[in-house]
Design a protein around this nucleic acid. Structure first.
Lengths: 160, 160
DNA sequence: CAGTATCCCAAGCGATACTG
DNA sequence: CAGTATCGCTTGGGATACTG
C-alpha cells in the first residue's frame, strides 16, 4: 500500500477524535505531573506544591481545571482546631486514567531515563514486580506487533 | 494511612521523573495528533496538514521536534519527474509509543465521546476486535484494581 | 508539493505579594 | 495552610505571504 492509497483509505473524518480532546485536557505542561502525584497518594495543596515545585498559581489552575473536567473532586475535611479545608481525590474518570500514566511512565523510563535509571516505578502491591501495559484485542489475543493494529472509523465518524 | 503519612512516605525525589520529561515532548497541543496520523499510516506533510487542519508552520515545527527527539525520521523519496522530497516515519522509539496512544484513545473514547460514539477505533487486524491495554505485573498477573499498584523509587531516585 | 518567513495575539509560566 | 491577585515574560498558535 503506497502512501497515497493510505491517505485515501483514511478519507473519513477524525474531527473530534478523542485523542485530540484528551490532549486538550492533558496538554498543559503540569497537568499529568499533578495527576501522577495524586496517584502517588498526595491529596493536599502544599504537599503537591513542595514535591513538584509547581508555582502556586499554576497548581491552583490545574487543580481547578481537573475538578472542572470531573477528573478530581474536592473533599472537605477539618483537622482539630483548624478551619475547614479541601483535599483532592480521583473520581472514577480520574481513576480510569491510570493506564495512560502506566504507559507514559513505561515509555519514559525506557527512553528518557538518566544513566542511573528511572526515579519512579510502579509495582504490583502483592508481588512487588514492575507493572506494564499489554495490548490485547477484545477476543483476548495479545497484540505483539503494532502493525497488527489498524485504525477504523467508529460510529461517530463522518465521511468527508 | 493518612495523607501526611503518605506524603512522608514519598520523601524520595522524583526530579527528572520521566513522566514529566515525556510531557515536555508531548505537552504541545498538536504533537500527539501528529503521531496519531503517522500511526494511521500518513507520512507526508500535506496529507497530515489537510487531515488535521494544523497550520503549516505548527506542523513543520512539530515534525522537526519529533525528528529531533528521535521519534520520527525523515526518509527521502522521489516520485517520477518530481524533485526529491521527504516522508516521515516512526523510529523504534516512536513505534514503542503506541501503547500510550491506545490507552489515551481508550480513555478518551470512554469519557470524551460525542453521543454518537467515537470517530476512531483501533482494531486487531486479524479478528477486527477493538484493542485495549491491560495492566500486568512482570510476574504475569493481571492487575485489575489500580489500588494494587504502588509507586516505588527507582534506581535513579534521590533522598531529599 | 513541501515547506520558510513574518507577524500578531492569546495563553501559559513563574515570581512575588497578599489574605483568611 | 491553602489558596487569590497581579504582573511581566516567553512560548505556542494561527493567518498570510513567499519559495524551489
Amino acid at each position: 500500500m503506497n502512501p497515497t492509497a493510505i491517505a485515501e483509505g483514511l478519507a473519513w473524518s477524525i474531527d473530534g477524535c478523542t485523542i485530540g480532546r484528551a490532549m486538550e485536557v492533558l496538554g498543559e505542561k503540569w497537568t499529568v505531573v499533578v495527576l501522577r502525584e495524586i496517584f502517588n497518594g498526595l491529596r493536599r495543596f502544599d504537599d503537591m506544591r513542595v514535591r513538584t515545585g509547581i508555582p502556586r498559581q499554576v497548581l491552583a489552575n490545574r487543580l481547578a481545571m481537573l475538578v472542572d473536567q470531573g477528573i478530581l473532586r474536592r473533599v472537605p475535611y477539618r483537622e482539630p482546631g483548624a478551619r475547614e479545608r479541601h483535599e483532592y481525590r480521583l473520581t472514577p474518570k480520574g481513576l480510569d486514567f491510570y493506564p495512560v500514566l502506566i504507559t507514559l511512565l513505561e515509555w519514559g523510563n525506557r527512553y528518557l531515563s538518566d544513566p542511573e535509571g528511572p526515579p519512579l516505578r510502579f509495582v504490583h502491591r502483592e508481588c512487588g514486580a514492575d507493572v506494564h501495559a499489554e495490548v490485547h484485542c477484545a477476543d483476548g489475543h495479545l497484540v505483539e506487533n503494532r502493525r497488527d493494529i489498524v485504525p477504523r472509523p467508529g460510529p461517530g465518524a463522518r465521511r468527508r
